[in-house]
Design a binder for these strands. Structure first.
Lengths: 275, 275
DNA sequence: CGGGCCGATTAACCTATGTTGTAGCCCCTT
DNA sequence: AAGGGGCTACAACATAGGTTAATCGGCCCG
């Protein structure tokens, strides 16, 4: 692992990009966030950033590169739960738990920020809007996992594969890593198989069908989506679950006040539901 | 829907039970939580508490009864994402989003508490430890979904089914709804099928195998697990993912201080990682 | 008492996907 | 240049699980 100074201004950090699509953050929040990303670490491909069963680890913020979050059965069968892209958090949840129930492994060389879990408490106490924004980010991740569950449970191999490709395309464009329907997919077919609950042979067959039908092109790790519309329709892709829309105004309002000490009296209860 | 006064003291509320297995909460936090559960609503079976695509809804806390969280494809195929048991939150995440990406439907008559989403902001601002505890609860739920993803992707029908039964048994015992390996499973085989990504016929076959091998017994909706150990081993069940262990002490410590105003200066940074 | 509906059950048959095995390609290392 | 490892590709065969359809029992309701 290599250490390196933070090279980008916080405004160009993928996490910032992602969060600010959700909330407008204040200068104080911005500077706190940038402090969290102060310690930058580089790791080579195929490094475990977190291991199933592990007790304790720093929280990481992915800044550049790809990783996978995966779980394994004792006999070696493996499921990729999600792809970790720039702007995603690693082990955020794990700090709330005694030990990790999944592993995170890099696919490419990555650049991650790293901070000790104690700072999560600090964050919740002092920066409630930031805490809520991170909860939002976690919720969005869970929504992605739930959608993948729908894929594995109820979509055919072809549909699943199409769906995943469209999802990655959408997620990558948020952080400016995809343009014109093509992007780099630094992934072996084995990993795709483990993500989609298929055998490696069947993933191969399925990709072939997608190529033969002209929907996608593959050149090494570069994938080109020729017709996003049609691919999305094959995969029954509905981007609602990615929750790319800004927070509802009513919620913004609920967060807009200054943080308050709790003092035993309950905040104004005049907004009770219809009696 | 029927309104009813809160009948139980907060200490016996399932949410309280669940959260206090995680954090020791103060009296102030206790009274705020009890205030959130002030408005109680009863709903009959087969009622939608939340609908995919819906814009806005109160947050609900399940106090009694069962529900399912599910997603549907346009053509009607359906996946049950999770079972909602007493102590679980409904739509908590959805308030952070513009609209819901899943539905929640009751299986039995239920008793839920209901509060407007604005109070989430209030909660984050004034009760950071409570906010963290709810984030923990959300993280735990996502861990359950991820484990189900592993099931659908990599476990056989028999393993999946065994795994789910053990999971429900464990979750129900936390809220005192299972004893001696038996509990009420208010669920049709169609719902089980939708939860496990199987056809209804195959669920039937699989349950038969489990019965024939003497691992479980079914009498109407009552299910009895004769040998939890063995059933868990069939399902490759490892309860790590349920995160039933109390919060690590280091995190308790991080939360133990009084809430602080943020003031632009960063809280002590002396606990940086090894340099 | 006679529908009629819903859910469980089972049989017979079918297919999507898994398994096994072989080959070729690319890229590294020596 | 030879060898080896990792990955893609594809053919041949095997099977877990899906589909269709029929039966049965319980329960509600007129």
């Amino acid at each position: 692992m290599t250490r390196a100074p933070a090279s980008r201004a916080i405004e160009h950090t993928p996490l910032w990009l992602k969060l600010s699509s959700y909330l407008v953050l204040s200068d104080e929040e911005k500077s706190y966030l940038s402090d969290l990303e102060r310690t930058i670490v580089r790791e080579p491909p195929r490094t475990d950033l977190l291991q199933q069963g592990e007790r304790y680890r720093d929280v990481r913020i992915m800044r550049d590169g790809w990783a996978i979050r995966h779980k394994a059965l004792p006999d070696g069968r493996r499921q990729v739960v999600n792809f970790v892209l720039p702007g995603d958090l690693i082990g955020m949840y794990c700090t709330l738990f005694e030990s990790a129930d999944h592993s995170v492994t890099t696919l490419t060389a990555v650049e991650v920020a790293s901070f000790p879990p104690e700072r999560i408490g600090e964050l919740f106490r002092s920066f409630p809007r930031l805490a809520a924004a991170l909860a939002w980010s976690g919720a969005r991740e869970e929504a992605i996992v739930a959608e993948r569950l729908l894929s594995l449970g109820r979509r055919t191999a072809l549909e699943r594969t199409a769906h995943l490709i469209v999802e990655l395309l959408r997620r990558l464009s948020i952080v400016n890593m995809a343009a014109d329907g093509h992007f780099v997919l630094p992934v072996t077919q084995e990993i795709l198989a483990d993500a989609l609950g298929l055998s490696i042979v069947h993933i191969n067959r399925t990709l072939r069908r997608l190529r033969d039908s002209g929907l996608i092109e593959l050149n090494g790790q570069r994938i080109t989506v020729n017709d996003v519309r049609q691919l999305a329709s094959v995969g029954q892709f509905d981007e609602l679950y990615l929750h790319l829309i800004r927070a509802p105004r009513r919620l913004e309002r609920a967060f807009s006040g200054a943080p308050q000490h709790h003092n035993g009296t309950r905040p104004d209860g005049e907004d009770r539901p219809k009696a």
